[in-house]
Computed example of a mutant assay.
Amino acid sequence: MIAFIGSVFSPWYKWSGRREPQNHCCLNVVTSGLNGRFTMTDRGRSALRQSPDRLQIGPSSVTWTGKELVIEVNEWGAPPMVTPVRGRVVLTPRAVTRTEVLLTPDAAHLWRPFAPIADIEVSLTQGHRWRGHGYFDANFGTRALEADFAFWTWGRYPLRDRAMCFYDATLRDGRHFDLAVEITPDGEVRETTAPPRTRFQRNPWAVRRETRADRGTKPRPHLSLLEAPFYSRALVETTIDGERTLGMHEALDLVRFRQPLLKPMLAVRVPRRALWP
């Protein structure tokens, strides 16, 4: 689930020249399984309301109560499954960090791991009701992702006494950005040494995938969550410091994303609703 102001993967935002991010906002919700749905309605400025503790995008909202992040979902699935996706998600951080990471030297792109260790309760239509462990972060940028990056992978893996986050990126100028941090339940964030990058099975669209794994071990995809010609999101099993763990992983091929032919394909899955009463 991602709340966007300036929907970076929206073809409508790209075609607008990205001049006004507030005119291209959305709440992207993806659920999996037989009743899985995908929502990513590109909404106009009139749908956006912001305050220090609340972000409202059309009929959906994200609210910080001081202890919990409460997401009220009221969306419609994208074609071909055009049905309502409604409900509530409540994320309770074990701690909130104050860490901010520059993803490019000029700070055009930032990453904020607000709550890498959290408890979550999900209740959505189509039968998605469960409790488990969750994660909350944010990215900020003043340029398009594809203007600065060629490829990146990201992963968050829970361990017995901490969580590990890996950010590995190749910039368009050939430089590399490699980050490994460990986060304790009390919110302490420490940079650490990562095990080697290790490739594993490509996604169904042949997007390259890799993550960190101990030498002599190989990651494997456990559950596919979202697959596209330029993007993969999946639960991935890997080994870190001798501990086998199952975590969230994404791979993003921005060379492919820059291809103009992808934008009309995306428009089918990302409808535009410019006005909101």
Rank of each mutant, 00 (worst) to 15 (best):
I2W: 00
S10R: 00
S10V: 04
Y13C: 12
Y13N: 04
K14L: 11
W15D: 10
G17E: 04
R18N: 05
R18P: 10
R18S: 07
E20R: 14
P21N: 02
P21Y: 02
C26S: 13
V29T: 11
S32E: 09
S32V: 13
G33V: 07
L34R: 14
L34S: 06
N35G: 14
G36S: 09
R43Y: 00
S46Q: 08
D53A: 14
Q56D: 13
Q56C: 12
G58F: 00
G58I: 00
P59L: 05
V62Y: 03
V62D: 01
G66H: 08
E68I: 05
L69P: 06
L69A: 05
I71K: 01
I71T: 12
E72G: 12
P79N: 01
P79W: 07
P80W: 02
V82H: 08
V85A: 06
R88K: 15
R88F: 02
L91K: 01
A95V: 06
A95R: 07
T97L: 02
T99C: 13
V101F: 15
T104L: 10
P105F: 08
P105I: 09
H109N: 11
H109G: 11
R112E: 12
I117T: 12
I117L: 14
I117P: 07
E121Q: 13
V122A: 01
T125Y: 07
Q126D: 12
Q126S: 15
H128P: 05
W130I: 04
D137W: 06
A138R: 11
A138Y: 06
A138G: 11
F140E: 15
G141R: 05
R143K: 14
F149R: 06
F149Q: 05
A150M: 10
T153R: 11
G155C: 10
R160K: 12
D161C: 12
D161I: 09
Y167D: 08
Y167F: 15
R172P: 07
R172Y: 03
D173F: 08
G174Y: 03
R175Q: 11
H176D: 09
H176W: 06
F177Q: 11
E182I: 08
T184P: 03
V189M: 06
E191T: 09
T193A: 12
P196Q: 00
R199F: 15
R199V: 09
R199A: 15
F200G: 05
F200L: 02
F200K: 04
Q201L: 14
N203G: 13
N203W: 07
N203R: 05
R208I: 12
E210H: 07
T211M: 06
D214S: 04
D214A: 03
P219L: 07
P221H: 07
L226T: 05
S232I: 02
R233V: 12
A234Y: 00
L235C: 07
V236Y: 05
R244E: 14
M248N: 13
M248G: 07
H249N: 13
H249V: 09
E250D: 11
E250K: 04
A251M: 04
D253W: 07
R256V: 09
R256F: 03
Q259G: 01
K263F: 15
K263W: 14
P264Q: 01
V268A: 10
V270G: 01
V270P: 04
R272A: 08
W276S: 06
P277M: 04
P277C: 02
